[in-house]
Nucleic acid binder design. Structure first.
Length: 265
DNA sequence: AGTTGTGTTGAAGA
DNA sequence: ATCTTCAACACAAC
C-alpha cells in the first residue's frame, strides 16, 4: 500500500511484471481519457495516453536492442508507431504495445477495488456521449463551474474526455467565443454547445481521431478527423463559414483557435 | 541556431 | 481556496 493506503499503485517495473504476468483480460473499458483493462485476480491496468501515446496491437520481434514489427504495414512503416516503451505479450503470440513520442503516457496497475474507490476515478465528470447525459444535466454541470467556456469544457471534473482540439472545434460549431464566461451563456447558447459537443465527438469517433501528429489506432492506422477540422491549428487561414481570418490566443497555458467574426463574444 | 509550439495533467507557486 | 505557471520529454517548424 502507498499514498495513505488508498491505492495499490505499482510504480516499480519489476513488481509490475511479476504482478501482471498470467492474468487474463476480462473486460476493457474507458472513462474520459482513461482506458482500463480489468484483469483476473482483482487487478485493473490503467492507461492514460496523455499527449502523444497510443496503444498498438500486433506482433513484434526483438532485433538487437530494437523491437521491430513482424508484418508489413503501418506498425512497421509509420515512424509514429516506433516509439515503443512497453510491450505486453499475450498468450496467442499477439502483443499490446505503447508507442509514445514524448513519454508522458501513464500505465499503472491498480487493485480493482482501490481504483473503484479512488479519488482519481470519482473526480471524473460526466461522459459526454452517454445517453443519460441529457441537455438538462449538461446545463447543471456547467452552471456549477464558473469560468471561460473553453476551459470549463476541458475540465475533466465537469465533462470527461474533451481536450484542446475538440473544445476548439465544438465552440466553432456552436458559434461561441472561447473566452465567454459560462455565467453569461443563455439557453440557446448552451443548447448549441451541447449539440455541437455531441456532434463533434461522434464525428471524431466515426472518423477514428485526429492524426495530423502522432495519434494512430490500435492497428497503427491514421484517423481522418483532420479532413473535418475547422479551426484547430488554422491560425491565419480563412474561416470556412464566414471567411474571416482564424485567430489564436493563449488561454490558461493552452492555445485556443477561433473565428473572431462568427463566434459570438 | 535558438526559440516556440505540441493532443495532458498534476504539482508548485502566487 | 483558486488561479497561473511550469515540468515531465522529444521533435518539427518558424
Amino acid at each position: 500500500m502507498d499514498e495513505g493506503g488508498r491505492t495499490e499503485k505499482i510504480k516499480n517495473f519489476g513488481r509490475f511484471k511479476k504482478e501482471i504476468k498470467g492474468r487474463k483480460i476480462q473486460k476493457i473499458w474507458r472513462r474520459g481519457k482513461n482506458i482500463f483493462f480489468d484483469l483476473s485476480g482483482g487487478k485493473t491496468l490503467l492507461v492514460h495516453q496523455k499527449l502523444t501515446g497510443h496503444l498498438l496491437f500486433g506482433r513484434w520481434k526483438k532485433r538487437g536492442e530494437k523491437w521491430e514489427a513482424i508484418d508489413k504495414g503501418p506498425l512497421a512503416e509509420d515512424p509514429m508507431n516506433k516509439f515503443l516503451h512497453l510491450i505486453l505479450p499475450l498468450d496467442d503470440g499477439n502483443m499490446l504495445a505503447l508507442s509514445d513520442l514524448r513519454k508522458f503516457a501513464k500505465i499503472e496497475l491498480w487493485d480493482k477495488k482501490g481504483l473503484e474507490e479512488s479519488e482519481y476515478l470519482k473526480a471524473l465528470g460526466e461522459e459526454p456521449l452517454d445517453n443519460t447525459f441529457t441537455f438538462k444535466k449538461f446545463k447543471e454541470a456547467l452552471r456549477e463551474k464558473r469560468g471561460k467556456i473553453k476551459q470549463v469544457l476541458m475540465d475533466q471534473s465537469v465533462i470527461a474526455g474533451i481536450g484542446n482540439i475538440y473544445s476548439d472545434e465544438i465552440l466553432w460549431a456552436a458559434k461561441i467565443y472561447p473566452t465567454k464566461n459560462t455565467a453569461e451563456l443563455r439557453e440557446p447558447d448552451l443548447k448549441r454547445i451541447y449539440l455541437a459537443m455531441r456532434k463533434i465527438l461522434k464525428k471524431a469517433v466515426e472518423l477514428r481521431g485526429e492524426s495530423f501528429s502522432d495519434f494512430r489506432d490500435l492497428e497503427g492506422k491514421k484517423g481522418f478527423f483532420d479532413e473535418y477540422r475547422k479551426v484547430y491549428r488554422r491560425k491565419g487561414q480563412e474561416c470556412g463559414r464566414c471567411g474571416a481570418v482564424i485567430k489564436r490566443i493563449k488561454l490558461g497555458g493552452r492555445s485556443a483557435h477561433f473565428c473572431p467574426k462568427c463566434q459570438i463574444r
